[in-house]
Design a protein around this nucleic acid. Structure first.
Lengths: 336, 336
DNA sequence: CTGAAAGCGCTAACAG
DNA sequence: CTGTTAGCGCTTTCAG
């Protein structure tokens, strides 16, 4: 046990100069020891460490970063920190492997907050930013990019701006889901998705309509997009079933939950977009189109590091394949 | 649309001095405009803004923070950013209301990573840190606290150190759950919890044992704690039911899910610790002991701000009440 | 290795 | 309001 904390009086924090004086060495030597430069003798290093401990010296990275120009820090501006976000997890992991610190903040799906967060990170001179962009107008990024910001968008592109991004192959995912259900004999397949003002929602809904058209299926009462609200989704499911739907494709994990909630009897096949922990809680387990979160995260860091290293390199837009995981809910044929 | 990004050549970023020269004003005036000080004429302010836009000047907070001494930034070191964490959400909200930026990082339940993250935040001179402490040895915090770190622990105390913290009333939650089930006639109540090396898990398990003792109930095969593994929890549930348990109290939300998974027939009453989105997905809906996340988060920020303002104020350890939410799973009587 | 000094970009104190 | 200047704490160059 460590016991009582000695809460320091109003005295100035010690600096490197103080440490140098205490240890009786040159400032330069302290700097070397702190950045553990090999070219310093063992005896001197020990004296410096003793002085650091005696004074309670703590290096100040603000000054270091100011002098160095770089901060060794990446910002992550995501929709909601405290939500499940495997991509963010992969981003943190990949950044750690590259010895970069990730500091994250929520944008709360609020365009103004996104702007505040990103601009704040820019003023702090983070080396780069991983952004889950929201909203339509990202014009505020233009001066930052011109001033040297390195940015990579994940999950969605930054509309109207030519910046690096890495997104899932949403259309391929929908096509896989559609073909999977059709392969089990479904002819009336419905889609329940998110608000189409959201980029991914729009991509997925569009792909669904294309699939139906190609299959020669009518769309009446089969496509339901809009905000994620329990009542709306329950309505959508009821309408689709009333029109004879025997299978549903959902637009994301939250919608999958609501669709399952709205389907008390399990006679409708479901393929959900996005995998989640809940998928294997349901009975039967949920068949899903899973994103490759690990690939998205590490690709984002790769792109960002390359952009930081060479600001004028060509823009890369990477599309990451998705995978259909058959677990049961998507393999039931239509009722005879 | 904004079109092509003008990726700046290798030229130096403009500074305040450049802006002052461009606008033909004093450096001091630029500083005032940037920090929108009211005592500056409209005409001059316009000229400065024009110069800022013309040069693409972006203020550098590193220098500002270095000069000012404070950073207006709080760090949040939490177990896993990309997990559901309503407390973190409340922390962000409360900090924003106080005009403080929260930058968060994951500790991944790894003591060494926690240390790296916290020390990094200290070197960046964050004004304060919100920590979800893990592990037993927090001795590394001692020099930081002595050097002026403001810290508040949430969810668990920092063992062996006398620092501010805010935790839920775990024992009261367990007592409420026990009394609730007993009130519905249950005499054989089991507890399935997390690894007791975790502080909250230990508190909850201890409280459960005390409840059982007080009720004069035998504990044989009724208390199961350990790591969160599907097989272990399934075993625990089977054992408890074999010994005649008619009700289960769980130690946290993840365990609730696993317990439900292990109970295919719904003839066992359940009260879960921690509310979650899943609670209302199950049938019957899950009765839970819910933490007051909002209160925990805003209290944490209050304590932190007070600590920042007065470093030698007395340490506060706040316990936040919990609430039992009856939803169905905890209101079934034992089978006759 | 030492000692001295410049400079990163900003704020603030000073005298006009 | 302007112009000048010191200084935040660090890294790094330069001569010993």
């Amino acid at each position: 046990m460590h016991g009582e904390v000695n809460r320091r009086a109003k005295t100035r924090r010690p600096t490197m100069v103080d440490v140098a004086r205490e240890a009786g060495v040159a400032l330069r030597t302290v700097s070397r020891v702190v950045n553990d430069d090999a070219t310093v003798g063992a005896e001197l290093a020990r004296r410096v460490h003793d002085a650091i401990a005696a004074l309670g010296y703590r290096p100040d990275e603000r000054a270091r970063h100011l002098r160095l120009g770089v901060t060794g820090t990446l910002g992550a501006a995501v929709r909601q920190l405290s939500h499940v976000n495997p991509v963010l997890r992969a981003v943190e992991r990949a950044a750690r492997a590259a010895d970069l610190m990730v500091l994250a903040a929520s944008t709360e799906d609020d365009e103004r907050l996104e702007r505040r967060v990103v601009e704040s990170m820019c003023r702090r001179r983070f080396d780069g930013i991983v952004l889950e962009p929201i909203g339509a107008d990202h014009g505020y990024l233009l001066p930052e990019l011109a001033a040297g910001l390195s940015l990579v968008a994940v999950d969605r592109p930054v509309l109207g701006l030519d910046v690096d991004c890495v997104i899932s192959d949403n259309a391929a995912g929908i096509r896989a889901a559609y073909a999977h259900l059709a392969g089990y004999g479904h002819r009336r397949i419905a889609y329940v998705g998110d608000d189409e003002r959201i980029f991914t929602a729009q991509e997925r809904a569009t792909a669904f309509r294309a699939c139906a058209a190609e299959a020669g299926a009518a769309l009446d009462g089969m496509v339901h997009t809009g905000p994620i609200e329990r009542a709306r989704i329950a309505d959508a499911v009821a309408t689709a079933r009333g029109r004879g739907a025997t299978a549903v494709i959902t637009g994301n994990a939250t919608i999958s939950v609501e669709v399952v909630r709205a389907l008390p009897d399990r006679d409708t096949a479901i393929v959900g977009f996005d995998d989640s922990e809940l998928a294997t809680l349901l009975r039967p387990d949920l068949t899903v189109v899973a994103q490759d979160d690990q690939a998205i995260g590490s690709t984002a860091i790769d792109l960002l590091r390359a952009r930081i290293a060479d600001h004028s390199r060509p823009v890369h837009r990477v599309t990451v394949p998705v995978e259909l995981l058959a677990r049961g809910s998507g393999e039931q044929p239509p009722p005879a």
